[in-house]
Nucleic acid binder design. Structure first.
Ligand SMILES: NC(=O)c1ccc[n+]([C@@H]2O[C@H](COP(=O)([O-])OP(=O)(O)OC[C@H]3O[C@@H](n4cnc5c(N)ncnc54)[C@H](O)[C@@H]3O)[C@@H](O)[C@H]2O)c1
Ligand SMILES: NC(=O)c1ccc[n+]([C@@H]2O[C@H](COP(=O)([O-])OP(=O)(O)OC[C@H]3O[C@@H](n4cnc5c(N)ncnc54)[C@H](O)[C@@H]3O)[C@@H](O)[C@H]2O)c1
Lengths: 237, 237
DNA sequence: TCGACTTTGTGCATCACTTCACAAAGGCAC
DNA sequence: GTGCCTTTGTGAAGTGATGCACAAAGTCGA
């Protein structure tokens, strides 16, 4: 019983930056709901979500005018509206390809099953791994990728294979009609227009931290004396 | 033998957006280096890193003038310069707090040890887990957090505990002098100024994908007929 | 019913980042 | 040398996000 909203005047063009924050607001709202809070002001919600309150109000205004001046926002109603906007009122079948260290952790993770995401398939190329029972599922051979996607209506695929296999897996997944991919492998995936790839890259996050850490400690980049500093000195102006 | 660079004219104020892309360039460059490529044009490197070439050139120009007109950039030299800028010429001791599904996957992950990051401690509060051998390390009790940080010179901490424990762990870690934190727990950490927190949140990534997926399938958010749509209709204008 | 008070929603100035487009720089062939 | 060709480095314009500040809207107590 899900159908398209008849005619919604706004709807078009919610900024990406806003979309990226909606899950944050949703989490904060769920926290409030658990503590039986009925309404919340933009100021309080902003603090809970760690953002500026004007930004929060502007973000929410993209969804519609759901607040009450002088009072704030109804927590339950806002949860519903944000969930609906994010597409969490329906559930999404997710397949995880590559059931190694990371794939297992993801499969066992309760955190996304809780919100509309259902792990509908675990696939791996290694015969040793195929057949393992993880989180109530049996790992299937990645040869079955296309049929698993088709049969179980998978619309989001998580890639947790080694970097070398990621592009090939990605190509097959797209050929099967999937257009939303979450990639953990440290490679830039090449995909046709219309396919969304989001990446999670731990190593990049650490490197960004290291950059700032270095500035805090030293005030800036260091040179390694007489090891490389001199060596390179001649090569460039 | 590491010391501060004498007087660097630029150095100050590399835009955050640029810093976030440097690891990407570095990875692409390492790929080229493995294939023994000596020089690369901004165009080719941009394709490998999945960005616009003008953006790449502007990013690199923040580090200095390291290209040669008509030729491109020396791969090895650029690897060195970016590594130095990111602080990867020194190595960083990392501690992982919370050795559950995710913490184990991280500990076993070879990907960051390879680039200047060394896992120097694994800590958990669960006596069942303490004493486990993982990736050549023994899991220690989280009571030892402060002493592990001090003794092993830990400067970056990865938090992989349940959300409920994250803020407490964070506070202790900061009290021990750490100012760089990578947080996997789905909570907004409150930290004093001067402390950098980066977060990785799988659930947020999936929700963003779901948002776009919904738009592709339906053209926009759906209403759930007669279940909630009607129910809420009365509550708001 | 009214007026004081709270809080939203948004116009606007500002800031940050992106992209275009091209002059200047340098290599290389002859 | 000299001139052509490639590619960098960067002004300048464009795009999008941010945050201030406030009028308008609505609540609530008296
Ligand atoms: N473990 C981490 O903490 C971590 C962190 C960041 C990034 N990553 C990245 O995530 C990916 C997975 O990491 P991991 O530690 O789980 O590695 P892993 O080696 O433990 O697991 C990879 C799994 O993928 C399977 N596989 C290989 N080729 C396949 C294919 N073509 N189709 C299906 N399955 C295939 C392997 O059999 C293996 O089970 C890697 O790209 C890694 O760089 C891991
Ligand atoms: N597993 C995933 O794929 C995944 C994905 C995204 C986010 N997360 C988040 O990462 C965190 C860890 O996830 P997980 O699946 O590994 O959970 P987990 O329950 O398997 O592991 C958590 C570990 O933290 C330990 N711990 C609890 N309190 C502690 C404390 N005060 N000090 C030190 N250690 C403590 C526990 O003993 C346990 O070993 C959670 O916050 C989770 O929401 C996990």
């Amino acid at each position: 019983m899900i159908r398209r909203t008849p005619q919604q005047p706004r709807e078009r063009g919610i900024p990406d930056a806003t979309v990226a924050r909606l899950p944050l607001y949703l989490r904060a709202l769920n926290g409030l709901a658990e503590r039986a809070v009925a309404t919340v002001s933009s100021e309080d919600l902003a603090v809970a979500a760690g953002v500026n309150s004007a930004k929060l109000r502007k973000d929410l205004s993209h969804l519609g005018s759901y607040g009450t001046r002088g009072v704030g926002y109804d927590v339950q109603y806002l949860i519903y509206q944000i969930s609906r906007e994010l597409g969490l009122t329906q559930d999404w079948a997710v397949a995880i390809v590559g059931v190694g260290n990371l794939g297992r952790a993801l499969a066992n993770y309760g955190g996304f099953v809780s919100r509309g995401f259902r792990v509908a398939g675990l696939l791996d190329a290694d015969p040793e791994v195929v057949g393992d029972h993880i989180a109530g599922l049996v790992v299937e051979h990645s040869d079955e990728l296309e049929s698993v996607i088709a049969k179980r209506g998978v619309s989001i695929v998580v890639i947790a294979t080694p970097a070398t296999a990621a592009q090939a897996v990605c190509d097959r997944v797209i050929a099967s009609g999937v257009t939303s991919i979450l990639n953990f492998a440290p490679v830039v995936l090449t995909v046709p227009a219309g396919v969304d790839v989001r990446k999670v890259d731990l190593s990049i996050e650490l490197q960004i931290l290291a950059f700032h850490e270095q500035r805090k400690v030293n005030g800036g980049p260091a040179v390694v004396d007489e090891i490389m500093g001199e060596e390179w000195a001649g090569e460039v102006s």
